Simulated assay, not measured.
Amino acid sequence: MTTQENINYNRIAEAIDYIKVNFKQQPTLNEIAASVHLSPYHFQRLFTDWAGVSPKKFMQFMSIQYAKQLLKNNHATLFDTAHETGLSGTSRLHDLFINIEGMTPGEFKNGGENLIIKYSFAESPFGNIIVASTQKGICHMAFFDNEEEALQKLINRFPKATYNQLVDNLQQNALFIFKHDWSKLHQIKLHLNGTPFQLKVWETLLKIPVGDLSTYGAIAKEIDKPKASRAIGTAIGSNPVAFLIPCHRVIQSTGNIGGYMWGNTRKTAIIGWEAAKINSKQV
């Protein structure tokens, strides 16, 4: 799957890597463009079309100082923001429309032998993605570089399930999350296998609004497990649905981006992209 959208994202990812490495030197537009073998004019247009802001503005959203400021501002009200914002117009928060249903032991028994899973491959602003669903909701969503490996990882999670490569309404609605107008988003239903602790952590992540950030320690306090930061990190790292459960919004307390199952560059891109969308609506 090598379309123009993915080619463009790969170029943006290269530019983000260059900016991350050379951030302290504050590289110029010409220098960033040269790093991805584009003219400054073409690169500026490509980057702005993708991110909605200029490369210079995007660098601000990538900075540790910006991340720290977000964490400071959200320290007291982070988990109230989603409820205070309301659901009016295009500002409604897409996270509030995601509902998690845990799989029963019977549904996951013997490698998911009772599950019928539909799956499809799609594109996103952050590269190719695989999405899979049961009759109850989305059970898997992941970014990938190799289609065969992506499918095998899904099969490894549910080795005895029945698989059909087929797009359904559940998948289509989930993929609409990447569109800019979240006011038209219907409720997304997730059907996940996880321990009660994991499900609680994942549900807590859904309370972090678009464009905001939290830390492992803050999540631990929110679920009344203040000493469980390491376990929180493990649960976040086990998130089976990329982007829908926004584990990318959890960073280190120092402001550093930290790890991400689907790559640190992609995490940086998502954080910057979301910040750009939210800030553009506030202008």
Rank of each mutant, 00 (worst) to 15 (best):
L213K: 07
H180S: 10
R230V: 11
I98P: 01
D181E: 12
F143L: 14
V131A: 09
N279L: 14
N169G: 00
V241H: 07
K72H: 11
D95F: 13
P196N: 02
P196K: 02
G258H: 15
I155V: 15
I117E: 03
K109Q: 10
L190K: 03
E113R: 01
L93Y: 04
T162E: 14
L71S: 07
R230F: 12
Y216E: 09
I16L: 15
L71I: 06
M261A: 04
I116P: 02
I32F: 10
F176V: 00
V283A: 10
G106V: 10
Q25P: 03
E123Q: 12
D145V: 11
Q198K: 01
N6R: 01
W50N: 10
T48H: 02
I219T: 04
L115K: 02
M1S: 15
L185W: 13
G259P: 09
I188D: 06
L154R: 01
G233Q: 03
S54G: 09
S35Q: 00
Y260N: 07
P55A: 05
L71A: 04
E147M: 14
L71R: 00
L87Y: 08
E203L: 08
E14T: 10
T104N: 06
I257K: 10
P105S: 12
M103C: 02
A132T: 03
I232T: 05
E5D: 15
Q282H: 13
P27K: 05
I245L: 15
E14H: 08
N8E: 09
E123K: 08
L199T: 08
G102I: 01
L70P: 00
P40F: 05
E148M: 06
V53A: 11
I232Y: 04
K179S: 13
S120H: 13
A51Q: 04
Y260V: 01
I245D: 06
Y41T: 08
R157A: 07
T268A: 11
G111W: 06
T215I: 08
E5N: 14
N264K: 14
M141S: 08
S91A: 13
A142Y: 05
L71N: 00
F58S: 02
K207P: 06
F97H: 12
L170F: 12
I271R: 15
K68P: 06
L115A: 06
A82D: 10
D168K: 00
D80C: 08
Q65V: 06
G259R: 05
P125I: 10
N279S: 15
N193H: 14
G86V: 05
A218R: 00
I129V: 07
R45W: 08
Q69N: 09
A142W: 02
K72L: 04
K24Y: 14
F243L: 10
N256I: 07
E222T: 12
L93F: 06
L87N: 10
F144W: 07
E148C: 02
K221S: 07
N114C: 03
L93V: 02
S63I: 06
K189R: 06
L151P: 03
Q187K: 03
N279Y: 14
V250E: 09
L46C: 04
H42G: 01
T254H: 12
N156Y: 13
G259I: 05
I19P: 01
I208G: 04
F79C: 04
D17H: 14
K207F: 15
E147C: 05
I117D: 03
Q171L: 04
G89S: 07
R11Y: 04
S39M: 02
I271Y: 13
S133T: 12
V210H: 07
I270T: 10
